[in-house]
């Protein structure tokens, strides 16, 4: 405990880095995953095929592999050379998570009655407008719980960044654990910090569900 308090700046820095990884990856994954979902339900078969291939490929690949690609393989072929570690971490996590976001959004789109999109098209909205104004807002409302699960898994997945030299929570935990005998306290402290993050996501999800209930 004393070690942790003495070097609490390191702990807080690690917490902050994990928050950055989670928030940035979350935003990127939501945006990209939603675009993928729109491609998968859209009228253009090339885009449908591309998005489907992406999801199949990424969902069936371990996240660790994604990190190895972004941090080790890609620089060897001249990609991401000199890119900050945080950005690389966000890329690896987002590439992976957006496939899951896509599937969650798609299940939401399937839950929106067909008549909604037909009514939108009937008043003259284009496919893009139909998606952004009518279908996707309702799809999101329908998938808040599974989307929260995806984001919670993602938050915990950011820990893999530790292996690649990002001094986030898991990285720091190992650092303290290696230099101290009080492993249990250290473990509990760091676990608690993850719990705080995950609970924030859960609370956000519950809040959104409550707010959107009136409109369904």
């Amino acid at each position: 405990m004393d070690d942790l308090l003495a070097e609490r700046d390191l702990v807080l820095q690690a917490f902050w880095l994990t928050i950055q990884l989670a928030v940035l990856s979350g935003l990127c994954s939501l945006a990209f995953g939603t675009v993928l979902a729109a491609m998968r339900v859209g009228p253009i078969s090339v885009l449908r095929g591309a998005a489907t291939t992406y999801v199949t490929l990424v969902r069936n690949t371990p996240l660790l592999l994604m990190f190895i690609f972004v941090f080790v393989a890609a620089p060897n072929i001249g990609w991401f050379v000199g890119t900050p570690f945080l950005v690389k971490g966000v890329i690896a996590v987002s590439v992976y998570t957006s496939a899951f976001v896509c599937e969650a959004v798609r299940s939401g789109v399937n839950a929106v009655p067909l008549g909604q999109a037909e009514a939108a098209r009937a008043i003259g909205l284009t496919f893009g407008q139909t998606m952004t104004s009518v279908v996707l807002p309702q799809a999101f409302r329908a998938v808040v719980p599974p989307m929260a699960s995806v984001l919670i898994a993602m938050t915990k997945n950011t820990s893999i960044a530790a292996v690649f030299g990002l001094a986030e929570l898991t990285f720091r935990m190992r650092y303290f654990a290696n230099n101290s005998a009080d492993d249990t306290t250290i473990f509990l402290t760091f676990a608690l910090l993850y719990v705080v993050l995950v609970e924030l996501i859960s609370a956000g999800a519950i809040g959104l569900e409550r707010r959107w209930r009136a409109a369904r």
């Binding site: 009655p113 008549g115 909604q116 037909e118 009514a119 939108a120 098209r121 009937a122 008043i123 003259g124 009518v134 807002p137 309702q138 409302r141 959107w212 409109a215 369904r216």
Partner: peptide
Amino acid sequence: RSDVGMVFQSFNLFAH
């Protein structure tokens, strides 16, 4: 389509 109004049996108002 914007020049053709359509009214459906199941209303299809935008629920949100």
